[in-house]
Simulated scan of single mutants.
Amino acid sequence: MQELQPGAAAALRAEEEEDGGAGVEVAAHPPARRGQRPGRLRPLLALRLPRLPAARREARSCRGCCCSRGKAWRRNHTAVAGFRKLLEDCCDPGQLFVMTKLNSPMGKNLWFDGEFLYSFTIDNTTYSLFPQATPFQLPLKKCSVVGNGGILKKSGCGKQIDQADFVMRMLYTSDSGRRVRRGNSFGWLLQIHVYCGGSVQMDALRCNLPPLSSEYSKDVGTKTQLVTANPSIIQKRFQNLLWSRKAFVDSVKVYNHSYIYMPAFSMKTGTGPSLRVYYTLEDFGAKQAVLFANPNFLRDIGKFWKSKGIHAKRLSTGLFLVSAALGLCEEVTIYGFWPFSVDLHGKFISHHYYDNVLPDSGFHAMPEEFLQLWFLHKSGVLRMQLEQCEDPLVPSSA
């Protein structure tokens, strides 16, 4: 995790004010920079953004990403449509985001996207667990994708998040055995496990079963249409649902009538826990329903971002989810995505909004992912909320 120097934070704010924060159109493939090897096509939007050794250089590289309460930011409808077309051509989120009876017929052979040597054949039992078609009324209108970053703490963004038509969140993944950041030690703010997910009509998206108690609702809201759950969390926190079934059902009640999005067919070890989640919720008559991530979609999204310059063992859950939202929603705003140990005002913040436990390092390319998201924000494709949100109850001055 990199530290953003207080001085760099101030520079970010000053540069944004100077720049105006307006969205800009970006050519599909900008001209090559001096010294670039001939014949090598630079990735769209990323412009081959490098891994930067110092956080100050990182901050300067993403100048303009931080707008004061989003007042200067403008949505670029042309850029939004163009990026959605790219996603449709490569990955077709509207049809492939979840496994359905239409895209995964009985007898079809699919490869696990996380284990290239293993495949599975959809049998009658598995086929019966899929919805007939994608259960969202597409396109979704306004969507919120909610990460777990500490920048959400005391943000007052809960009401703004809940005003969306579709809210996606990521499963709460804290593990007491992991290291905790203290002071200004290094670390990335957002723990995003491998599948944190999504956005239906003016709702919000949240990542990996995050806590939504009254203690946090003012900052992160309570509305949820889709929440991602990594099978490893089911194994660790709920003993694979072999004898903690009621505890699991009680823990997801806070998400009301929402979908739990699980990568059942990414790794062989994740299939059993994911299917047990489905059967557990069904047995208890829970309000939540399970949707299974389509391994073809996850594989295609990974290839898409790799072609844009992100090199990692695997994309983060957050980037998977934001990608899906951009393909499913007309307007996307993301919260809790901020990879520094201080906020824009130089104040140290916790790793998550609910704790200060750091994730395992080296699996995801978080600097590269953040800079990609920043450029999408700068281009007007999505809005990245980094400052405190305005309280809608406070009347604006005339």
Rank of each mutant, 00 (worst) to 15 (best):
Q2A: 13
E3V: 09
A10W: 08
A14H: 13
E18R: 14
E18D: 11
D19C: 04
D19R: 12
G20V: 11
E25G: 14
H29I: 04
P31N: 08
G35D: 06
Q36M: 11
R40K: 13
L41P: 13
L41S: 14
A55P: 13
A55D: 07
R60Q: 10
R63N: 03
C66M: 12
K71T: 12
R74A: 12
V80L: 03
R84H: 13
R84V: 06
L86W: 04
L87E: 01
C90H: 14
D92E: 10
D92M: 02
G94L: 05
G94R: 12
Q95H: 15
L96T: 01
K101G: 08
L102V: 15
N103S: 06
M106R: 09
M106V: 08
M106C: 06
G107L: 03
F112K: 04
G114C: 09
F116N: 10
L117K: 12
T121K: 14
T125L: 01
A133Y: 12
T134D: 00
F136G: 02
L140I: 11
S144F: 03
V146I: 08
V146A: 03
N148K: 05
G149D: 00
G150Q: 05
L152E: 05
C157H: 01
C157P: 02
I161G: 03
I161L: 09
I161D: 02
D162A: 05
Q163L: 07
A164S: 14
F166Q: 10
V167A: 10
M170E: 04
M170L: 10
G177I: 07
R178G: 11
F186H: 13
G197H: 06
G197F: 04
Q201H: 10
D203K: 09
P210Q: 05
L212K: 01
E215Q: 15
G221H: 09
Q225L: 01
A229F: 09
P231H: 07
R237Y: 09
N240Q: 08
N240A: 10
L241C: 03
L242C: 14
I260W: 00
S266I: 06
T269L: 11
T269G: 14
L275Q: 12
Y278D: 15
Y279G: 04
T280E: 05
L281D: 05
G285W: 07
K287T: 09
A289R: 12
L298E: 02
D300I: 00
D300N: 15
I301P: 00
G302P: 00
S307V: 01
H311S: 12
R314V: 06
R314A: 08
S316C: 06
L321D: 05
A324R: 00
L326T: 04
G327A: 08
G327E: 00
E330F: 04
I334A: 14
W338R: 06
H345P: 03
G346Q: 09
K347H: 14
H352M: 07
Y354V: 05
Y354N: 10
V357S: 13
F363G: 08
L373S: 00
W374C: 00
L376C: 06
L376P: 00
L376H: 02
S379G: 14
V381R: 02
L382Y: 04
R383G: 03
L386P: 01
E390C: 11
